[in-house]
């Protein structure tokens, strides 16, 4: 765990999210308070329907919370317009999704550069080279997503998330569709980018092995933050989960 004096990357306060009305009302989040430190790799865990994806969507400005506040760095998300949120995502947030991460019409390199192109920024060539080498894709740059394996596709997505030096990367089940070897590779890359590039990563997962790669794991159940463990191992994560289910 890296201890720094830097302010936290993401802070959520009293976050609630309610879907539907009346009888159909579903409380996806019930007053979640959580802080994600800069330069840390945090995993969000919980059983299906615990609200972990909703939490991530609200933190990343993809969805708006019913009440409560979210800060990304010094910016408060509450009350931002769609355009402001879009620009915030563009400048400060990176994403790695479970599937369908890449645009099928673009080559791997074009996909990696996409966030920079969208915001019309010049690529930092040194960073670009370093990222490409870190994920080991130099000989695959001209390929289109359909010509890449699932693991390679996720590595392209990783590289894309890293290239814009975002304040935080949100990864939603990044290994969900991969075999265990490719999955392990991706998780190592995530950890490496935290250790070596000082990146902040928040990962949603339901896999204890994946969660064990993180510095810290927070557990969600029925929309509430139940507990958290630092320096997790697969076993400690599993034990906590079993306790939660009980």
């Amino acid at each position: 765990m890296t201890l720094t004096q830097a302010p936290p990357a993401v802070v959520a306060t009293n976050l609630t999210k309610v879907y539907g009305h009346g009888d159909a009302e579903v409380h996806a989040l019930r007053g979640v308070n959580v802080t994600f430190a800069t330069g840390a790799f945090t995993a969000i865990m919980g059983p299906s329907g615990s609200g972990k994806s909703t939490l991530m969507h609200c933190l990343a400005g993809l969805d708006t919370a019913t009440s409560g506040t979210v800060h990304i760095g010094d910016v408060e998300l509450t009350g931002l317009t769609d355009r402001q949120l879009t620009l915030l995502r563009r400048e400060r947030i990176g994403f790695v999704f479970q599937a369908f991460n890449l645009l099928p019409t673009l080559t791997a390199e074009q996909n990696i550069r996409l966030p920079l192109d969208i915001s019309a920024r010049q690529a930092d060539q040194v960073l670009l080279d370093r990222v490409i080498d870190t994920v080991g894709l130099r000989d695959r740059l001209a390929h289109r997503p359909t010509e890449l394996s699932g693991g390679q596709q996720q590595r392209v997505a990783m590289a894309r998330a890293l290239i814009s030096k975002p304040q935080v990367i949100f990864a939603d089940e990044p290994t969900g569709n991969l075999d265990s070897r490719s999955g392990a590779e991706i998780l190592s890359f995530l950890r490496t980018s935290v250790r070596e590039l000082g990146q902040t990563i928040v990962m949603v997962t339901h896999d204890p092995v994946a969660a064990a790669y993180a510095d810290r794991v927070v557990f969600l159940r029925d929309g509430e933050l139940i507990t958290e463990i630092a320096a997790p191992t697969p076993q400690s994560v599993l034990d906590t989960l079993v306790k939660l289910e009980a």
Binding site: L62, R90, E91, F95, F97, I118
Partner: peptide, 16 residues
């Protein structure tokens, strides 16, 4: 739909 959503997540504005 998903492709558009991905682009929007990556910071493409609605007008874009």
């Amino acid at each position: 739909t998903r492709e558009s959503a991905l682009l929007r997540a990556l910071g493409l504005t609605r007008p874009q």
